[in-house]
Design a protein around this nucleic acid. Sequence first.
DNA 1: GATTCGTGGCG
DNA 2: TCGCCAAGAAT
Length: 357
Amino acid sequence: MPARPETAPEPRWLARRLLAWHARHGRHDLPWQKNRTLYRVWVAEIMLQQTQVATVIPYYRRFLRAFPSLRRLADASLDAVLEQWTGLGYYARARNLHRAARLVRDGLGGRLPRDLDGLMKLPGIGRSTAGAILAQVLDRPHPILDGNVKRVLARCFTVDGWPGEPAVEARLWELSTACTPATRCADYTQAIMDLGATVCTSRNPACGRCPLAPRCLARASGEPTAWPAPRPGRTRPRRRHTLLVLRDARGRVLLQRRPPAGIWGGLWTLPLCPDRADPARWCRDELALAIRPGRRGPLIRHELTHFRLELEPLYAELAPNRGGTREGPELRWHVPGSRPPGGLPAPVRRLLDTLTA
DNA sequence: GATTCGTGGCG
DNA sequence: TCGCCAAGAAT
């Protein structure tokens, strides 16, 4: 049984322990940690929102190769940006990143703001992301509050309640502010995130390797994973859709652009089968596939089913741009294996890959 | 204040 | 197979 401290750790002790731990056990060679510019760290922080480091790294390298500077990003088309974002998810991040780059190019002389309020005015940058950028690039003493920090602080100080509740989050902001030291802010910020990501993990915390364990109240309780409290249960609505793979005689696949906002906003997907329509009823000439998302998540897992589709009725519904006057979804024929017209959702990309092979 | 937004990994 | 979670922000 661990020793049982009765008082919460002092902020200065916590920061000192974290800094010492980070020197030996922290991560020091992440791609955005070298050549730390506002632009490079900004892009990294946006990609890292709700996304783990290991997932981000290859995307980050490709993205910076395609858009080495803010100017190059602002001058690029949104389609080109979404194409780089394909598979990363949360595509509003890419749209906001691109919009912010143009705002900076056109209104701020091409320079990203170097203060909290200025950064937070840009789309996609909230308080935590702004703090992380300033702490890492300029070593400014701004607290952050991401999932790692929430977990570490909630355990150390046994903060009750689900962090999604505003009152709990406010308390965690207080603690994060109190613990953030006036100096060595870049190292401290990286340290507490690294601890949360590699030691104070959500399911199997390695308290035996934690520099904060001696005074961690959750550790002392014997059940460190009791904090933070889990999100209250909720019933997620199940949605079921059918996407159609329509191929012409040359093997091209019909793609349709999603509306600019909402799920997969601005991306190119397979056309949606109209609700209540049975794809099988349209079987006739062309071989097609239907994707039927399963019970998981918004639109994720899918099964492939072969259908033979009658194209003409669908074209009447899907190709309203013919003639140039009617409004309707943007459509494009795509040759599998060639460069896509823009961003593709991961399931669509995977499907197109199977058509290539 | 509650929901929405992707995808991959984990137990 | 399933539910939860992850370097959050916008609506």
